[in-house]
Every structure is written in C-alpha cells, then in structure tokens.
Amino acid sequence: MSGLRGAALGLAAGALGGLLTGVAAPQGNGVEDDSAQVIVQKARKALDEAKSVRMQAQVEDAAGTTTLDLRFDVDGNCTGAVGLPGNGGHADIVKRGEDVWLKPDAKFFQSQIPGASGKDAAELINGRWIHGSTRNALLHEFSEVCDLSGFQRKYASRPASESLAKGGKATVDGAKAITVTSRSEDESSTYYVATEGKPRLLRVEGRQDGQKGKADFSDYDKPVPAGTPRPGESVDLSQLQ
C-alpha cells in the first residue's frame, strides 16, 4: 500500500508541476514608481470600477470595536456580518434586491432593545433569521451597508486640503503593496495599493474624530454569493409587528 501511495503522490506532483509551468508569476504593475497622487488616483479608479468586493473592517472608539465582514456589489446585494462594540453582540446579514435577512444573536437583541424586551425578543426569534423589505426602518438601516455604489462615491471624493506623501513597501495578506499617507485638517489615512496585477486598494487605515479604523479589500469582481436563508429558517418581520 505504501508503494501505491508513493506512486500516486509522485504522479500528482508531476501533474501539478506541469500545470504550474504554464502559470506566469504575478507581474509588477509599475505603480510604485508613480507619484503619491497618481498611486492614490489609480487605486480610487480601481475601486470605483469594481462590480463587487469584499471588505473586512474594524473601527475602534471609546465604546469599543465595531467589526464588519461584507461582500457587496453595485446592485445592492450583499452577505456578511457585523459585530457591535463592547458586549453588543453579532448579526449576520443577507440582502438580495429589496429582500433583507438579519440574524442577530441574543447579545445583539439585548444591546438594542432595553430591559426584558430584549431577552423576550431573542427567545421569540430563537436563532432564526428576521426577513423583511428594505422599506422597513430597522432592516433599511442595516441594509445601507450593502450599498457599494454609495461607498465608491464616498471614497472617490477627497478633501480639498488633502496632502499625500509616498511611503514604503508593505504586504497585505501576502500581496505586495506600496503605501501612501493622506492627511487633511481632521484626519489621517494610509493607503496600501497593490504593486502586482491591477493597482487595487488592498487596505486603508487611519484616524478621525477619536476613531481608529482599518479596512481590507479583496475578491474584486467576484460575484456575491446568491444563496438566501430558507423560509423555514426565517421569521417574517410583518408577523412580529
């Protein structure tokens, strides 16, 4: 058996080697030779043209750390999760068109609904998804994070007083990058822009108004997963109201 296993592993390694022979290594895109202004302009353009992206972000302030892991697209579809600061709990979110599903945990309910009502709500939902429309005030508020187009517009606008300075080389999850620091009257940010493949924004981190934040961007133009919770796994919000 050990001989057969060794032969099989040898064949697999040979086949893999043959496949990799035809795969070119990532090529430098030359962005690290550009000025700070051009680097940021290219990164903004790449994000603005993205049809979909994954964003993993965290924001720290006096209340604690808010986290977000979201895959969203320009059509307003998304899937992901949000974590509230302190002991505020966690909620999964799915949005397809005008339909929104929200799955809060017990801590989330208790942090958002004061007193015994929060505990009662958690027991009533019992780990299921809350399903409704973006026309519902509660679900609309959470579904706003799915607006990639709005995020792109906000990122594309830059402060009139912005001052950019080119930094050094870095890596983001193994991807090579060049950094650029941006400073304006009330905030400072550092952009990490890919130096291989397309000059995409890989990470931005900074401070503003007592908040410290970081966001990583990946899976550019990969479709948002289309699956939605099954009817038996969710509760219609209109029935609860």
Rank of each mutant, 00 (worst) to 15 (best):
E98R: 08
E98G: 02
D99R: 15
D99P: 03
W101K: 05
W101V: 08
K103L: 12
P104N: 05
D105I: 08
A106L: 11
A106P: 04
K107A: 13
K107S: 13
K107T: 09
F108D: 09
S111E: 00
I113F: 04
I113S: 05
G115Y: 02
A116I: 11
A116Q: 13
S117R: 13
K119A: 12
D120L: 09
D120G: 02
A121K: 10
A121R: 06
A121T: 04
A122C: 07
A122S: 12
E123M: 11
E123S: 11
E123Y: 02
L124C: 01
I125W: 07
I125P: 02
I125C: 03
N126V: 07
G127N: 15
R128M: 11
W129T: 03
I130M: 12
I130R: 09
I130D: 03
H131D: 02
H131R: 14
S133E: 10
S133K: 14
T134N: 00
T134F: 00
R135S: 14
N136R: 08
A137Q: 09
L138N: 03
L138G: 00
L139F: 01
L139V: 07
E141S: 08
E144C: 07
E144W: 05
V145S: 10
D147Y: 04
D147G: 07
D147L: 13
S149H: 11
S149Y: 06
G150A: 08
F151A: 08
Q152L: 05
Y155T: 07
Y155M: 14
A156T: 05
A156Y: 06
A156F: 07
A156K: 15
S157Q: 15
R158D: 02
P159Q: 00
A160R: 04
S161G: 04
E162K: 07
E162S: 06
S163L: 10
L164G: 02
L164K: 04
G167C: 03
G168T: 14
G168V: 15
G168I: 14
G168S: 13
T171W: 10
D173Q: 05
G174A: 00
A175Q: 15
K176P: 01
A177D: 03
A177H: 05
I178D: 00
I178H: 02
T179W: 12
V180E: 09
T181K: 15
S182D: 03
S182F: 03
S182E: 06
R183L: 04
R183C: 03
E185I: 06
D186F: 07
E187F: 13
S188K: 15
S188C: 10
S189Q: 14
T190L: 05
Y191M: 13
E196L: 08
E196K: 12
K198G: 10
K198F: 15
K198H: 10
P199R: 11
P199G: 05
R200Q: 13
L201K: 15
L202R: 11
L202I: 10
R203Y: 01
R203M: 08
V204Q: 10
V204C: 09
V204D: 05
V204S: 07
E205I: 10
G206A: 12
G206E: 12
R207Y: 15
